[in-house]
Design a protein around this nucleic acid. Structure first.
Lengths: 111, 111
DNA sequence: GCTATGCATTGACGACTGTCGATACAACCA
DNA sequence: TGGTTGTATCGACAGTCGTCAATGCATAGC
């Protein structure tokens, strides 16, 4: 549950405090795993904008518990949204969240 | 030595392959640590554009070997440049590198 | 040469993390 | 009600990572 409040404090234009750095690092840590990046990419590129969890296990090539684990991490960090429909769980992207991280990497102008 | 070639393959607009994901994840892993984020921020916000390593130990509040370790990680990933002058080591930012990571997080337009 | 200084490397330790099998839970169907 | 199916959770294990003290390695000054 790393709540990103540093939406307007780019790394390049202001010295990061200890707390701010811890917060940003936690956010990037979620992206620092190939399985999670691929899950994010699979959901983001779905034509309907959402994907059933059952369609994510095979493409990822890992066990169902592992996929569920990573999906939970993405949901907890706010990058994905989860919606249960009966037995199935559908995931969609929160685009704003990626934008916040993107803007943290540099001045708004060049990024 | 994670060489980022995925400069034009945003997560949101194309499905990531296994290799591509591994590459991007390695790049984000460097940013997934508060000490490294603060070092990057300290160097980026230096008026002269470069900082001596001797001026980075105290602000970071960690031991000299630890700071040196993180600086090496930032240099290896291409985010920082190192230049030795006599006994001292001076560090500066490679702005292009951050831009690549930033653009990987979304469409160029909104980022 | 010798000593001092700034930085990098080594070795070790604790903590965290990605992974899986086993299991629990919840919803649907017969 | 019982059985099946899709997900989430648990427990355990191996591997990775951040950290520091100790050491090595240059460079500068005596």
């Amino acid at each position: 549950m790393p709540e990103i409040t540093a939406c307007c404090a780019p790394v390049l234009s202001a010295p990061l405090g200890e707390d701010e750095a811890e917060e940003l690092a936690g956010a990037f840590k979620v992206l620092a795993d190939p399985a999670r990046l691929r899950l994010l990419s699979l959901v983001a590129n779905a034509p309907s904008g959402e994907v059933c969890a059952c369609d994510l296990v095979a493409p990822l090539g890992r066990s169902q518990p592992t996929v569920s684990h990573h999906l939970s991490a993405l949901v907890d960090s706010g990058l994905l949204r989860r919606e249960r429909r009966g037995k199935w769980a559908w995931y969609s992207v929160d685009p704003d969240r990626l934008g916040i991280l993107c803007r943290a990497l540099g001045p708004v102008v060049s990024c």
